[in-house]
Computed example of a mutant assay.
Amino acid sequence: MRRRHHFHIDHAGHSVSVTFQTGHTAVVEVLVDGKETGHATTTGDRPVVVAIELPTDPPTPATVRALPGPGIPRCVLEVPGSEPHVMSPRLY
Rank of each mutant, 00 (worst) to 15 (best):
T43V: 03
A66S: 04
T25D: 09
R46I: 12
L54K: 01
E78Y: 11
V64Q: 05
T60H: 07
P61H: 12
H14W: 11
D57N: 08
R74E: 11
H8E: 07
V49C: 05
T56Q: 01
V32W: 00
A40T: 15
V49E: 10
S88C: 13
T41D: 14
G44C: 06
P73A: 05
E78K: 11
V48D: 05
T42F: 13
V76L: 03
P84M: 08
L67R: 03
K35V: 10
V76P: 00
I9R: 10
T56V: 04
L54H: 08
P80Y: 04
T37D: 00
G44E: 04
A26D: 05
P55Y: 07
T41R: 11
C75G: 02
T41W: 12
Y92L: 15
G23V: 02
P59G: 01
R3G: 00
D57R: 11
F20G: 01
T19S: 08
A40V: 13
A12L: 14
L77W: 05
V16I: 11
H8C: 05
C75Q: 12
I52L: 05
P47C: 03
H85L: 11
G81I: 07
L31E: 12
G13Q: 09
R2Q: 09
V49A: 15
T60A: 10
G23K: 05
D45E: 14
S17L: 13
R65Y: 07
L91W: 15
P61L: 12
T19G: 09
P70Y: 11
L54G: 05
R65C: 13
T22P: 04
H8M: 07
A62I: 05
G34W: 02
T37N: 03
P89L: 08
G81E: 04
V50L: 06
A40M: 08
T42S: 14
R65H: 12
T42Y: 10
